[in-house]
Write a protein that binds this DNA or RNA. Structure first.
Lengths: 302, 302
DNA sequence: GGGTTGTCTCTGAAAAAAACGAAGTATTTT
DNA sequence: AAAATACTTCGTTTTTTTCAGAGACAACCC
C-alpha cells in the first residue's frame, strides 16, 4: 500500500519551491485555502510537519527538507515519463533492453539474440553489459527486460524472477595459429605447462574447466584470468595463451580471432540462462527469445 | 505544469504488475469498472495506449512498457519518502548536506563549517567531495544543501543558485622542515628552481599563483599538479615540494603536515564561495554559514 | 455450434475529495 | 495602533472518483 497522496505532495513541492502558499496558489491557479488544506492533510497522513511558521511566512522543517529531496526526483521522473511517451516512435517498434553478463561469450549472446529479429515488428535492441549482481538489480527496477548470464538467478532471492536455460554449448580449447600448431598434437595431455587464459572464478564455467583439467591430469600455466570474455578473447587473439570457447562458434572464432580449435573439453559446457521478471504480462521479445530453444523452464523459486 | 495524474499512474502500475484489471481491482479493493475507467483516462491524457487487448487479457504496449519503468522508480521513491519520514529522528536535529570541491583546503572547509555547530539545535553534517560540476548537479537535485568551492557559480547557468563569498584567505608558501630551511632565505627569489607542488589549472587559485610567480620573476620547478588539495598536502608533507596554503592555517599546518611558512604570496588569496539553491525558504544552517562572515552576496544572475 | 466462463467497457447515479468564499488569527510594517 | 501580509478554519459548491448494472468479446468445454 502506498499511503501517499501525490497530488498533495505536488502542492507541497510547489510551495517549497515558491516559498509561500500565496505564490504557489498563484502559480497553480488555485485558492490559497485549497493549498493550505491539502497541505495539512498531507502532514497529517505523514505524521510530520513539513512546514513551520516563521515570521508571517513558512520555513521547511527537517522532515520537509528531506521530503523535498524525494519530491524533486519523483516529479522529475513524472515529467520524463510524459516527454518520453510523447516523443513519438514506439508505434510499431519493440524495444528490448538486454543485460549481458561480462563473462558470457559475446558471439553466443549475439547468436541467441538474433532470434528476436525474426519478429514481425521492428525490434530495437538495447544492450548493456555488467556484473551479474548489477544486472539483476537493473532487472528488478525494470531498467532491463532480460539478462543473459551463465547461471540461473539465486534461488533465495527476494526478487521475483525466473530463469530459463537457453541452451548448452559444448566447449573446446582454442588458440592462435602458432599456439594451436604447438599444442595440438597430443591434446589434451599436451596442455600440461601450456600458457592458458581463463575466466575468473566468478564465472560458472571456470569451475567446470578446473574440474576437467584435473580429471585430464594436465596443469596448464595460467597466464591470465579475465572477468570479461571479450577482453579474454582479445588477449587470446594476440597469442598470449590458449582459451576456451564454445565449439559451435568455431567458424566465427576463426574469422574474428584468428584462432582454431585444439580439441573439445568433454563435460565442460557453457550454460546460458535468460533471466526475466516474473510478471503476468511478459515482454513479447522475451517470449520469443525463450521459445527459440525449447528447454524446461526453471522457476527461481526452486 | 505536470499533466500527469499519479493516482491513475498508480492504478496502471498495479495492473501491469498483476497482469489483469480484475486482480488489480482485488488488490486495491476497488471495483474493476473504476480501474478500467481511470486507466482509459490516463491513456487519453498521455495520448498513448498503454495496454492492448490480448486474448481475453491484456498486454503491455511498447509505450506501456516504457511507462512501467518510470512508474517503478516513482513509486519506489514514494515508499522511500514515507519510510524515511516515519523513521523518527529529525525531531530536533538539522541535517546539512555539504559538497566540498576537491580543490579547496579541507582545513579551511572545516573552519568555515564549524560555525554551524553554534546553532541551538543538533546539527548533523553530511560531507561529500567531488568535482565542481558534479557537486553543482547534486545541488540542483537537492541532494546537497550547499557547495563550498573556490569560485562562484557560472553566471549563465540554467540553475537558479546564488553564490556567497565566505571570505578571502591570504596565501603563503609552505614546506616541510628541510625544504623550508633550504628555501626560506631570500624568499621569494629563492623559489627559482625550487621544487613545487601546485593545484591543477582547474583550480581558480592556480592562475593567481602563476601570475604572482611571474611578477616575482621566479620560476620554480613544478614537480606535481594536483586536483585534490588533500592529496597535494600529503605529497607536501613528505617533502616532495613546496606548496601554497592559507596563512591563517599556519598553526594547523605545522601540526598536521609538519610544514612551516616560508613567506606570503601578496595578491594571491583563496576565495571560498558557498553556493546554495535560490529558494525562498533557505536552509537554516546555510543561513548561519553565510552569515558567519558578513560579505556581499553575489547573485548568480550577475 | 452453443452454452459457460473470464475479462474488459459503457452507462448513470452515489460517494468522496478537492476547491472556494467568507471570516478569523497571527505577525510584521508603517 | 492601524494597515498589510500570510496562513487557518468553516461551511458550501464543484469536481473527481467510485460502483452497480448491463453489455461486448474472446477463450474454453462439451
Amino acid at each position: 500500500m502506498t499511503p501517499l497522496n501525490y497530488k498533495h505532495l505536488y502542492y507541497f513541492w510547489v510551495v517549497a519551491q515558491e516559498g509561500s502558499m500565496t505564490r504557489a496558489a498563484e502559480r497553480l491557479d488555485l485558492a490559497i485555502q485549497t493549498i493550505s488544506g491539502q497541505l495539512s492533510q498531507l502532514e497529517r497522513q505523514l505524521g510530520k510537519s513539513l512546514f513551520a511558521a516563521h515570521g508571517r511566512g513558512l520555513a521547511l522543517t527537517e522532515a520537509g527538507r528531506q521530503a523535498l529531496g524525494y519530491a524533486d526526483q519523483i516529479f522529475q521522473l513524472g515529467d520524463a515519463l510524459v516527454s518520453a511517451l510523447s516523443s513519438s516512435d514506439h508505434e510499431n517498434t519493440v524495444r528490448l533492453r538486454v543485460g549481458i553478463s561480462d563473462g558470457i561469450p559475446k558471439l553466443l549472446a549475439y547468436r541467441l539474440l538474433s532470434s528476436v529479429y525474426k519478429m514481425p515488428v521492428d525490434v530495437r535492441l538495447i544492450c548493456d553489459e555488467g556484473e551479474f549482481e548489477t544486472l539483476l538489480a537493473d532487472l528488478a527496477l525494470h531498467r532491463l527486460d532480460v539478462v543473459l548470464t551463465d547461471r540461473p538467478a539465486p534461488i533465495g532471492g527476494n526478487l521475483k524472477v525466473f530463469s530459463k536455460r537457453l541452451g548448452d554449448f559444448a566447449t573446446g580449447v582454442f588458440g592462435s595459429a602458432l599456439l594451436a600448431e604447438r599444442y595440438k598434437v597430443g591434446f589434451p595431455q599436451s596442455l600440461d605447462g601450456a600458457p592458458m587464459l581463463l575466466p575468473t572464478r566468478h564465472n560458472a564455467l571456470r569451475s567446470r574447466i578446473d574440474r576437467w583439467l584435473e580429471q585430464s591430469g594436465v596443469r596448464p600455466r595460467v597466464v591470465g584470468e579475465f572477468e570479461d570474455s571479450a577482453l579474454l578473447n582479445t588477449f587470446g587473439r594476440e597469442g598470449l595463451g590458449l582459451f576456451s570457447a564454445p565449439l559451435a562458434l568455431a567458424t566465427q572464432i576463426a574469422e574474428q580471432l584468428a584462432a582454431q580449435a585444439l580439441g573439445p573439453m568433454p563435460g565442460v559446457s557453457e550454460h546460458i540462462y535468460a533471466i526475466s521478471n516474473e510478471r503476468r504480462i511478459r515482454h513479447p521479445a522475451v517470449e520469443v527469445l525463450c521459445a527459440a530453444s525449447p528447454q524446461d523452464e526453471t522457476p527461481a523459486a526452486l
